[in-house]
Amino acid sequence: MEYVDVAVIGGGQSGLVAAHALLREGLQPVVLEASGAAAGSWPRYYDSLTLFSPARYSSLPGMPFPGELDRYPHRDEVVAYLTGYATRLDADIRTGHRVTGVWRGDAGFEVEVADGSVLAARVVVAASGTFGHPHRPVLPGLDGFTGTVLHAADYRRPEPFADQRVVVVGAGNSAVQIAAELATTARVTLASRAPVKFVRQKIAGRDLHFWLRRTGLDIAPLGGLLRRPPTQLVIDDGRYRAALAQGAPDRRPVFTGIDGAKVCWTDGAREEADAIVLATGYRPDLPYLAGLDGALDAAGHCRHRGGASATVPDLAFAGLEWQRSLSSNSLRGVGRDADRIARHLAAHLRTQ
């Protein structure tokens, strides 16, 4: 069995910055990434995805995002940035290593990999993100829909839906962006429980993220005060509000039922649909912690305080939504949380 200081599970943005912070604390992390590249879920997002934060606010610690600072980077630019960050990071990063279980062991933890190998780690950082656990809400009649149902995690581009009738469920950034893109080739309805709430991308000539940083809202430690994240706002430069106003897509309340291929709307109308896209978010992807007593609650959510496990002293989390602040699971904010958990774990090891 191989013995390591820290096993970091996940080699995306959260795992990479966790490794960076741990190295600064004098620890030697081993990063275990399930996919074939240290870029996390970014290569699997839909083709047109563009950041809502400018490059100047999208950097990880120790490496500025390259290029013009006020542009909004594309998905592939983020992938290239993360792989470059991993290359510069002096850490042991092992791709193709999917963790299947974590248990208590003599040296702290035993971390099992899909190939059957086991690492003994003094501490563990769970940084596997959420993309591997798409949230599929219970919607009336959805299980009996005879058309195509897919989550936004499986959506790539609009061309396969040309001339089809498509319903996109959701009211967040991805839902609106995907629905508007699909509306260029298909007849699309955005179905949501409440109307979409927009916030302007630029205020007084400055990007929203400038104001979030200037006011301190971006880093305010609100995560522990909120039982649930607040209603998501859709960041818009004007085009998405205009698209909805023009009915491309149109917006309606979520359907009341489904009969075969027919969607039943709240006004009594029934119409056939070809596809339903669930842009309904994600949940922490932590199945490997199921056998670690106390790490997760009955619903599978991690018990933590600011990223440090509330029940397992030598376990920490990185990249959770609202882990500590509004920006905790973003490129611009995950580094701050990583520094905190690295200091916490280093102090814990010194007391052992």
Rank of each mutant, 00 (worst) to 15 (best):
L233N: 00
F210S: 01
L208Y: 06
A179S: 07
A191F: 08
R214H: 15
A242R: 09
R241T: 08
I203Q: 09
A204N: 11
T184E: 13
H209W: 15
F198M: 03
V196G: 09
L222S: 06
G216W: 07
V188K: 08
D250T: 01
P229T: 04
R252H: 08
G216H: 02
L150V: 12
R228N: 00
A248Y: 02
T184A: 03
L208H: 00
L208A: 06
L226V: 04
P195F: 06
R157H: 14
V149Q: 02
Q201L: 03
Q164D: 07
F255L: 05
G216T: 01
D154H: 14
A186P: 03
S174D: 05
T184H: 11
A191T: 07
L225A: 13
A194R: 14
L217R: 10
V166K: 07
I203W: 11
A194M: 02
R187L: 14
V254Q: 11
A175P: 10
I203Y: 00
A175L: 12
L226G: 05
G205Q: 03
T231V: 11
V196N: 04
L233D: 00
G170E: 06
A171D: 10
A153Y: 04
Q164Y: 13
D236P: 02
R193I: 03
R157C: 13
G172K: 05
T231D: 15
G170M: 11
L244K: 05
L212Q: 08
K197R: 11
V168Y: 10
R227Y: 01
F161K: 01
T185M: 13
R156G: 07
R200G: 03
P158S: 02
L225Y: 12
R193K: 10
A186T: 01
R213N: 11
A242Q: 10
G172R: 05
T256Y: 02
I178G: 03
F210L: 01
